[in-house]
Simulated scan of single mutants.
Amino acid sequence: MKRILFPTDFSETATNAFVHALEFAKMVDGELILLHSFELPVFDNQFVPENYMVIFESLQLSQFEMFKDEIPKLRAIAEERNLAQIKLSHRLMDGDLVYNIRTAIKEDKIDYVIMGTEGATGWAEFFYGSNTANVLTDIKVPLLSIPAQAIYKPIKTIGFTTRFRPKDKKALKEVIAIAKLAHAKVKCLYVKTSDSDVDKQTIKEWENDFAQEAVEFFVVSSDEVKETILDFVLYKDIDLLTMLTYKRGFFEGIFNPSLTKKFATSFEVPILSIHLKE
């Protein structure tokens, strides 16, 4: 059984992502570990109040009470979607969110992390200075990020960006395994720029290697890589986009407001980020 970590602050964005997490858990035969992380205040040593421990215990208690109140609401959502059979367990941790996620991944042997993204433009806020952006660079398991406005729908088409590297092939096999569980097809995109070094023979070898799978390959010649990926997602009806990089600068560029503006609300597509081992 797959173990899925779901960090939540119980916001509307997180609650929306919880629906996606439930459905993903059903698809991969998984269980959800809910993580609520909070940070206690830091006092200057010169001004530590006499009731220092009382303050900390009070804050911890308030976080616990909120956690205790919110969990039944999430269970109710699972019941409404006929997914009450999905196993839910919980972690309440104080400290830095990214550190806590890394700790939970190690201690709970996590296979996937699913998080909601913030902001009116979904991906834009997500990749600009948010906690989730930091998670991208710090964890080594697949991360499924859910934009705030992304309404759940069954996955029928998975987009996969590639540069036809050997390590990309391993990632594609992982994506195909997910696609089979979802009864979905995979559409692979290679953006061939003026300085691309991938030859036709390599592309043909990939097509032959995956000829028996529900996979299509698309090669688009363009020096506008980011815009081409966005167009691909929109016009190929991609339900889930797989990105094979944790380089934050790339994500910041591809999902900035100037690019996503022309797609408006129709471009709220979840991203599955897969860490590539060198």
Rank of each mutant, 00 (worst) to 15 (best):
H90T: 15
K156P: 03
M27V: 12
D197I: 15
L35S: 03
V135M: 02
S221I: 13
A76P: 00
T265D: 14
D231G: 11
Y152V: 05
V220S: 08
L74F: 13
R75G: 02
D111M: 09
I71E: 06
V215H: 02
S222Y: 08
F10D: 08
S58K: 15
Y152W: 14
D209R: 02
A124Q: 10
S194C: 06
K185L: 05
V225S: 08
F56K: 14
V233Q: 07
E252I: 06
K167D: 13
V198Y: 11
E213M: 06
E213R: 06
T245S: 10
L172I: 06
I4M: 01
L172T: 03
L276D: 04
E227V: 08
K204V: 11
H20Y: 12
L34P: 03
I151Q: 10
K192C: 11
E213D: 13
S145Q: 03
V220K: 07
F217D: 03
M93Y: 15
E31D: 14
D108V: 08
V42S: 07
M27K: 15
V233K: 00
V269R: 01
K262F: 12
V225L: 10
V198P: 04
Y99H: 13
E213N: 11
I146D: 02
F217Y: 14
P142V: 10
P166Q: 00
L181E: 11
M1G: 08
I71F: 09
G159N: 05
L272C: 08
D96W: 05
E107N: 15
R91Q: 14
T193G: 12
S273A: 10
D239G: 06
K140A: 04
F18I: 02
S258N: 08
K185T: 09
A264E: 13
I238E: 03
N100Q: 05
E79V: 09
I146N: 01
L230I: 03
V141F: 09
E213H: 15
F18Y: 09
T245F: 09
Y99W: 07
R75N: 13
M1V: 08
T161Y: 09
F47D: 06
H20W: 11
E174N: 07
N208P: 00
D239K: 10
D69V: 10
H20G: 02
M93L: 15
L272Y: 06
L59S: 12
T117D: 02
F267L: 14
L234G: 04
G129F: 07
M115K: 02
A21F: 06
M93A: 15
I229D: 01
Y235T: 14
I203H: 07
F160Q: 00
R102L: 07
K262N: 15
T157F: 06
D29Y: 01
S273T: 10
G129D: 07
V220R: 10
Q212F: 02
T245W: 10
C188F: 10
D108C: 14
F56G: 03
E205I: 09
T202R: 12
E205Q: 11
V19P: 04
K153D: 03
K200H: 11
K247V: 00
D168N: 11
L230E: 04
M27C: 14
A17T: 05
F126T: 09
V113R: 00
I139Q: 01
F64H: 15
F47K: 04
I55A: 05
M66V: 14
D9S: 13
I254K: 00
I146G: 01
A78E: 04
A104Q: 02
I139L: 00
E174A: 07
K170R: 13
G159K: 01
D96V: 10
L35T: 03
E70M: 13
E227W: 06
